[in-house]
């Protein structure tokens, strides 16, 4: 008995020894910088004088700016129209992109789940957009969407869908659509693979039985496939949703400096490093973090994730 407790103590001690280096690195690279960012949001820090940053309370978020004659106005991030525009742009981007990624991902997954000659080749081809760096995808599409020499305009005009070339990335009305298009193209493979993995876990005899009973395929899809693939699909939606809320690369490369596509990350970085409003940018980063954190916590509670690994034992 004592040998067993000794063994457990020894192993527990080893566990913490193994974990410490990794936890130290994570603390240095994530928790400490996060705390710093939140702190900067409450200071008057500027890029050239970070050490001299002093506490100013909530001024970056909200402050009553008094004109001195009894009148005044609210100032700060929470009443900044540009910020709310960025929040709205981000939400719109996340919602629309993830919606279409899920839809197209489901279609591609269903195709890949069928048996047909050349399936392996198709699966490899589907992975190609995923493998291309985001910056490169944005440049490639930027070129394809070029107003004068772009192949997209050429195709659409040849088919007769448009009569004159469209400046996709430069026109406010289409800039957001262009950004979404690149994101959907690039990340649909991820969604398709997740859903495909879910589809492949459905036992084949369910379909056999449905086929024998002569159930209509649409009904089989709605009553059997969709409910069973739902968990995988939801995980994909949350993963992609969180990813989409922090979008930066595509917008920075494809449509910089447009109000129509300025997202939260871009707004924060502009203030941090371009407008010399380091404290204000930090405040914006903090709010973005809060939004993502709330969604993550909600997700973990909603799905009651099996973190202890009990099911495996």
């Amino acid at each position: 008995m004592s040998r067993k407790t000794g063994l457990i103590t020894q192993r527990t001690r080893a566990a913490w020894m193994f974990l410490t280096p990794m936890l130290l690195v994570l603390a240095a690279v994530a928790l400490y910088p996060l705390a710093q960012t939140i702190w900067f949001g409450f200071t008057d820090a500027s890029l050239n004088d970070l050490d001299g940053a002093e506490w100013v309370g909530f001024r970056n978020y909200l402050e009553w700016f008094d004109y001195g004659n009894g009148q005044g106005e609210w100032d700060g991030l929470l009443v900044d129209e540009r910020w709310w525009r960025a929040v709205w742009n981000t939400l719109k981007f996340a919602f629309v992109s993830v919606f279409f990624e899920t839809l197209f991902g489901l279609i591609i997954a269903l195709v890949l789940n069928a048996q047909f000659p050349g399936r392996a080749i198709v699966r490899t081809a589907v992975l190609v957009p995923w493998a291309i760096p985001t910056v490169v995808s944005a440049k490639m599409w930027g070129w394809m969407l070029h107003d004068q020499f772009g192949i997209i305009n050429d195709m659409l005009m040849k088919v007769g869908l448009i009569s004159a070339p469209i400046a996709w990335t430069a026109t406010p009305e289409t800039a957001m659509a262009a950004v979404m298009m690149v994101d959907i193209w690039k990340t649909t493979p991820f969604m398709a693979l997740l859903i495909l993995a879910g589809l492949q876990m459905i036992p084949g005899d369910i379909y056999e039985a449905a086929k024998l009973d002569g159930v209509n395929p649409v009904r089989v899809f709605r009553k059997v496939t969709l409910p069973l693939v739902m968990p995988a699909l939801l995980v994909g939606v949350v993963f992609r949703g969180l990813d989409a809320l922090r979008v930066f690369d595509i917008v920075y490369v494809l449509t910089p400096n447009t109000d129509a596509t300025r997202v939260m990350s871009l707004f924060a970085r502009e203030n941090l490093f371009e407008y010399d409003r380091f404290a204000y940018g930090s405040a914006a980063s903090t709010v973005l973090f809060l939004i993502v954190a709330l969604i993550t916590i909600g997700f973990i509670y909603a799905t009651r994730m099996d973190l202890e690994g009990k099911e495996d034992r």
Binding site: L26, L34, F289, T296
Partner: peptide, 12 residues
């Protein structure tokens, strides 16, 4: 931590 938005730790 893997859900952290990169921008949230950028200034820190």
């Amino acid at each position: 931590v893997s859900m952290f938005p990169q921008i949230a730790v950028l200034s820190g």
